[in-house]
Design a protein around this nucleic acid. Sequence first.
DNA 1: TACCGTTGCCAACAAGTGTTGGCAAACTGA
DNA 2: TCAGTTTGCCAACACTTGTTGGCAACGGTA
Lengths: 185, 185
Amino acid sequence: MTAPRRSDATRAAILTAARERFAADGFERATIRAIAADARIDPSMVMRYYGNKERLFAAAAEFDLRMPDLTGAPADQLGTLLVSHFISRWEGDETLLALLRAAVTQEAAAERMRGLFAAQVGPLAARVAPDPAEAPTRAGMIATQMLGFALCRFVLRLPPVVALDRETAIAWLAPTVQRYLTGTI
Amino acid sequence: MTAPRRSDATRAAILTAARERFAADGFERATIRAIAADARIDPSMVMRYYGNKERLFAAAAEFDLRMPDLTGAPADQLGTLLVSHFISRWEGDETLLALLRAAVTQEAAAERMRGLFAAQVGPLAARVAPDPAEAPTRAGMIATQMLGFALCRFVLRLPPVVALDRETAIAWLAPTVQRYLTGTI
DNA sequence: TACCGTTGCCAACAAGTGTTGGCAAACTGA
DNA sequence: TCAGTTTGCCAACACTTGTTGGCAACGGTA
């Protein structure tokens, strides 16, 4: 139980600005100076509170997929539920976008992305897959589709993918994810 | 018909080194100095022959998907043929990897990626899709899956995706691409 | 009040970046 | 042979980057 500090607001402002910049520009093009300017403080404050740029990114890219509990859900609805959940996670929080943009050139960010899918999608796959031994592969295939969708929609902004409304996107993606999760290979 | 210049070998060496560096490090972390060092020439030569870093990248990321002619192929084999072709294109040439890594932070590279799928996958989808009007969407969905696969396998290096051998990868991906190409939505 | 840790800013550093201009050597054509 | 072009390197430029140290103002505590 730590006492709240007077600088907590500054810390939070830095983190918010960092997430925005990392999400928009990636790791190398997001500069400490720009982040500090957004947070309306001096760049040296960023260093004092977060040590260096990598640790700032690590703090800003803290993320949890919050995978839903699918026990009890209709077996043929798993794909729809999962895809719908993923899209919500992407749209509600730019942290994942920051993580994806950075992961392409930052090994630490890539490692975190790997951990995210292994630790959160893997167990879910293990519970519903016909053979639990296939769970990592199934989680990996789901990653290829969901990260690919996010890449095309939010990063590359491929027009036909941007144009999809939520329901249509789910209609396209759900059968794919359903098959990766429970289908026979 | 231009006469071959004495500097053509240097130009080619620069281009090869540039492709390697851009593919491995992305646009901003690949430095002119490092590229020049790989090509064993002075950094100023890169500027003389390619003007600036952006134009160097544009030259290094010249790429053609070389989509195969699928007229006459069995309708139910389209997914397999396409996926197999994509994987070959990815593995045979690091240009596509350079383009993907750069596209995440460089708008010009993203634009080229958009053009690639619109101009090469789009027409193919128009020929085999039930309704040609859906071709852009279908090409876009194929992009989400194939770029997502490349992202996870070559960039993020998700272990279960890296571990897939070529046949297994095709077995997973082909039905997805087949459905995006010809399935009902 | 006097004290001391906290918060913040300013100025500067060292390193690395893309980029440029000039100059020597090598080559080409007459 | 000799002028003119091409090829290459060196040194430097202007700028940006992450990062550091010092110094003033603030705020709670005794």
